[in-house]
Amino acid sequence: MDSIFKVCKRGECGISIIGLERDNNEYINEDAELYSIRSYKYSESITINVINSVTSDGDYTNQSVELVTHVVTGIDRADVDFPIDGMYEITHIILPNQTYIEKWGNKFTSAQYSSMYYYDETDDKYKLFNIETKESTEVTLNDILEVNDLSVNNEGGQTSIIKSSRITFCTCYINRCFYNICKDILSKFCGKCINKLGYTKEDVYNRDIIWMTINIINYLTELGQFYEAQRILESVIQCSNLCKNERSEKGGSGCGCNN
């Protein structure tokens, strides 16, 4: 089966990550009493969504981990709020749960699975099932993320991890900043005579810089040039005093302005 998901805008600074595996018939039918390598029933699996912010230098910072337990009548959906503007990598992982291991684990060999990672909902732990000894050991989410889910062993065995990733870009806070600057200029304009404007050249300059930055970022992200868009954002916003009221304390590029 494949990891398939979409990202939808939610509110001002949020997204919804929605798994599409059921829509694409990736899961085994719930009524079927069968098992398959790297294919699971919806009820015998869980979803993990890992959200990392990424700098233009390629440094990753984890911002959120959203785990979705699979209820047959439910929706595979996780809602996330972005704490800062910029580039994000979203990794959508499908893992079997302890029910799958308890029912089918003893039937597999190393020629089928090189490693059987799963999530134990009872203990709230990630675990690795040893096919030879039939014992489980606790692992971390980082252990799972570091595994190449498409790797095979000498016998052709694969991992139990189903995952895919995609890049998205948040401009929530810089857009809010642009709105606040324009609103401030208008409030000053309306309160003064036309020849005695209340706003300054600096107000107009800041507005123009922010507007140009937004448009350049939008253009670059449409082209898929996310790292260049991130570089522009860092150089204009995170390393200056622009939009300082809209910035979050969390995150930053290491330039000394938003740490």
Rank of each mutant, 00 (worst) to 15 (best):
D2T: 14
K6M: 09
R10M: 04
R10W: 10
G11I: 11
G14I: 12
I15M: 07
L20H: 00
L20P: 00
R22P: 01
N25Y: 09
E26T: 00
E30Q: 06
E30M: 04
E33S: 12
L34T: 14
Y35S: 15
S36Q: 13
I37T: 14
R38P: 02
S39N: 09
S39A: 13
S39L: 03
Y40S: 00
E44R: 01
E44L: 04
I48E: 04
V50Q: 03
V50R: 02
N52Q: 11
V54F: 06
S56T: 05
D57S: 14
D59Y: 10
T61D: 07
Q63K: 15
V65P: 01
T69E: 15
T69D: 12
H70Q: 10
G74M: 03
A78D: 06
V80G: 01
D81N: 14
F82N: 11
D85F: 10
G86T: 05
E89A: 09
I90W: 02
H92D: 04
I94R: 06
I94W: 00
L95F: 05
E102F: 05
E102P: 00
K103N: 13
G105Y: 02
G105A: 05
N106E: 11
T109S: 15
Y113N: 01
Y113Q: 04
Y118N: 02
D120G: 06
E121L: 05
D124G: 00
K127M: 13
K127L: 05
N130R: 03
N130W: 02
I131L: 15
E132K: 12
T133L: 02
E138T: 14
T140L: 07
N142R: 10
V147T: 08
S151P: 04
N153C: 06
I162S: 05
I167A: 05
I167K: 14
C170W: 01
T171C: 04
Y173A: 00
N175E: 14
Y179W: 08
C182S: 15
L186Q: 10
S187N: 13
C190V: 08
K192N: 15
C193G: 10
N195S: 12
N195R: 05
Y199I: 00
D203C: 07
Y205R: 15
N206K: 11
N206G: 07
R207D: 08
W211E: 15
M212G: 12
T213N: 13
N215P: 06
I216W: 09
I217S: 06
N218R: 15
Y219F: 10
L220F: 07
T221C: 08
T221I: 11
Q225F: 07
F226A: 07
E228Q: 15
R231H: 11
L233W: 12
E234K: 11
S235E: 14
C239F: 03
C239T: 13
N241Y: 15
E249F: 15
K250N: 08
S253Q: 07
S253C: 15
G254W: 03
G254H: 08
C255K: 11
G256F: 11
C257T: 10
N258G: 05
N258P: 05
